[in-house]
Simulated scan of single mutants.
Amino acid sequence: MSQEARRLLIVHHTASPTLHELFEAVRRGATTDEIEGVEVVTRAALHATAVDVLQADGILLGTPVNIGYMSGALKHFFDTVYYPCLEETRRLPYGLYVHGNNDPAGAVRAVESIAAGLGWERAHHPVTVVGAPAKADLEACWTLGATLAATIS
């Protein structure tokens, strides 16, 4: 990648085979050959740092629904980066994908609330998948990744 490449950070908690399938679809979309000049960096939520966020031009977040909320790992990520990134990452474009076996609304609402507090700007509506992903769900994840990559390219 050239020094001019824009960086898309994917922060995910991939705790199941289904979430791995969604993550891979998002990553394939973000790395499509149709979009040039974007470096895609992936970090597990428990290992992503404020430096990762500060170096990003856009961010994609992935989480399971845990008891109606985002995963503890993604919450830990937000707790770790919130204040160090508060001023420097305003207007950072972001996207979100969520998987659960029940209603994902609480998880989406929690992530969007924290992202709004950080001043991040939603670049694509959240992709929510309940139960086993259908072909349309995987396509929506691919589109999410491609949209975020295109947004920052």
Rank of each mutant, 00 (worst) to 15 (best):
P84E: 03
L19M: 13
G58A: 12
T49W: 00
R27G: 02
L9Y: 03
V51H: 15
A115R: 08
I59F: 05
L74V: 10
D52T: 07
Q3D: 13
G62H: 04
R43S: 14
N66P: 01
V108Q: 03
W120C: 01
N66C: 09
L74G: 03
K75S: 01
T143W: 10
G117P: 01
A107V: 11
Y97V: 03
A116M: 12
Q55I: 10
D79Y: 08
V108C: 01
R90S: 01
P93R: 03
L148H: 01
A134D: 13
A149M: 00
I114R: 06
Y83E: 14
L138D: 11
Q3P: 05
A136G: 05
L22S: 02
A105P: 00
L60N: 08
V41D: 12
S153T: 10
P64V: 02
L19D: 08
A115P: 00
V38Q: 03
G29L: 04
E24P: 04
T128V: 15
I10M: 13
D33I: 13
L118R: 12
A30F: 10
L9K: 07
R109C: 14
P104G: 09
A134Y: 01
A56E: 02
V98T: 03
S113C: 09
L60W: 00
L22Q: 05
S153W: 06
I59C: 11
S16H: 14
G100S: 10
R7I: 11
D52N: 13
A50M: 12
A110Y: 03
E24Y: 04
Y97K: 00
D52Q: 07
L118Q: 08
D33G: 15
H47R: 13
R90G: 06
R28I: 01
